[in-house]
Computed example of a mutant assay.
Amino acid sequence: MEWQQHGRRQVYGSPWVEVWLDDVTIPGIGRIDHHVIRYPKGSTTSVVTNELGQILLLWRHRFITGRWGWEVPAGWAEPGEDPAHAIAREVEEETGWRPGRVELMTEYDAMAGISNAHFRSYHVTGAVKVGEPEDVSEAARIEWHSEADVVKLLTSSQVSDGPSHAALSYYLGPYRLACG
């Protein structure tokens, strides 16, 4: 069943996030105001691997959840910016490693029932160390981890960031199976 949208009004807006009330009719329920969170920029994540099969991760604190955890390099694509270019820029800024090849693995809508949060996840190979990270606020540590260690991190809740969890799980599962 398809919802019918009659209109919308913005409740809050910033360059980072917008909150809207959409006037919709839901079949079988009726007409309601539905809260919608919109993101003006697209989100990109990456699984950076090296020739040893290791994966590059960032150890960082997230003040909203109050948790430390391992994450993949990620960031926003500016309006009109190629998302593959955006993730290459983010990887270098956050880690000091310049990507070689950047290949789209998958894309998905993280919270399709309430948000337009759209993520693209890339596999980055051939990275070359070009210096220290440009933004020292991104991570307390940047380390290469074996695939076995990444699986342990995923299953022990040490990767709690949703986009990182999705990118790593997709890379270790469907992506690797499809690429043979």
Results as ranks from 00 to 15, higher is better:
Glu2Val: 07
Glu2Asp: 07
Gln4Met: 15
Gln5Asn: 12
Gln10Lys: 13
Val11Gln: 08
Tyr12Asp: 02
Tyr12Asn: 01
Gly13Asp: 06
Ser14Lys: 02
Glu18Tyr: 08
Val19Asn: 06
Leu21Gly: 05
Asp23Ile: 01
Asp23Lys: 02
Val24Asp: 04
Ile29Met: 15
Gly30His: 06
Arg31Thr: 09
Asp33Ser: 14
His35Lys: 07
Pro40Tyr: 01
Gly42Met: 12
Gly42Trp: 10
Ser43Ile: 06
Thr45Ser: 13
Thr49Asn: 00
Thr49Gln: 03
Asn50Gln: 04
Leu52Met: 02
Leu58His: 07
Trp59Phe: 10
Arg60Phe: 01
Pro73Asn: 01
Pro73Cys: 01
Pro73Val: 00
Trp76Phe: 13
Ala77Pro: 00
Glu78His: 03
Pro83Trp: 04
Ile87Leu: 02
Glu90Val: 00
Glu94Asn: 04
Thr95His: 03
Trp97Ser: 00
Leu104Val: 11
Thr106Arg: 12
Asp109Met: 09
Ala110Leu: 15
Gly113Leu: 09
Ile114Ala: 07
Ser115Phe: 03
Ala117Arg: 14
His118Gln: 15
Arg120Trp: 13
Arg120His: 13
Ser121Leu: 15
Ser121His: 14
Tyr122Phe: 15
Tyr122Ile: 03
Tyr122Val: 02
His123Arg: 06
Lys129His: 15
Gly131Arg: 15
Pro133Arg: 07
Glu134Tyr: 10
Asp135Gly: 08
Glu138His: 07
Arg141Ser: 13
Glu143Asn: 05
Ser146Gly: 12
Ser146Ile: 10
Ala148Asn: 10
Asp149Ser: 11
Leu153Asp: 00
Thr155Val: 09
Ser156Ala: 10
Ser156Ile: 02
Ser157Met: 10
Val159Ala: 08
Val159Gly: 09
Ser160Asn: 12
Gly162Val: 07
Pro163Trp: 03
Pro163Thr: 08
Ser164Lys: 00
His165Asn: 13
Ala166Ile: 13
Ala167Ser: 10
Ser169Gly: 11
Leu172Gln: 02
Leu177Glu: 14
Gly180Asp: 05
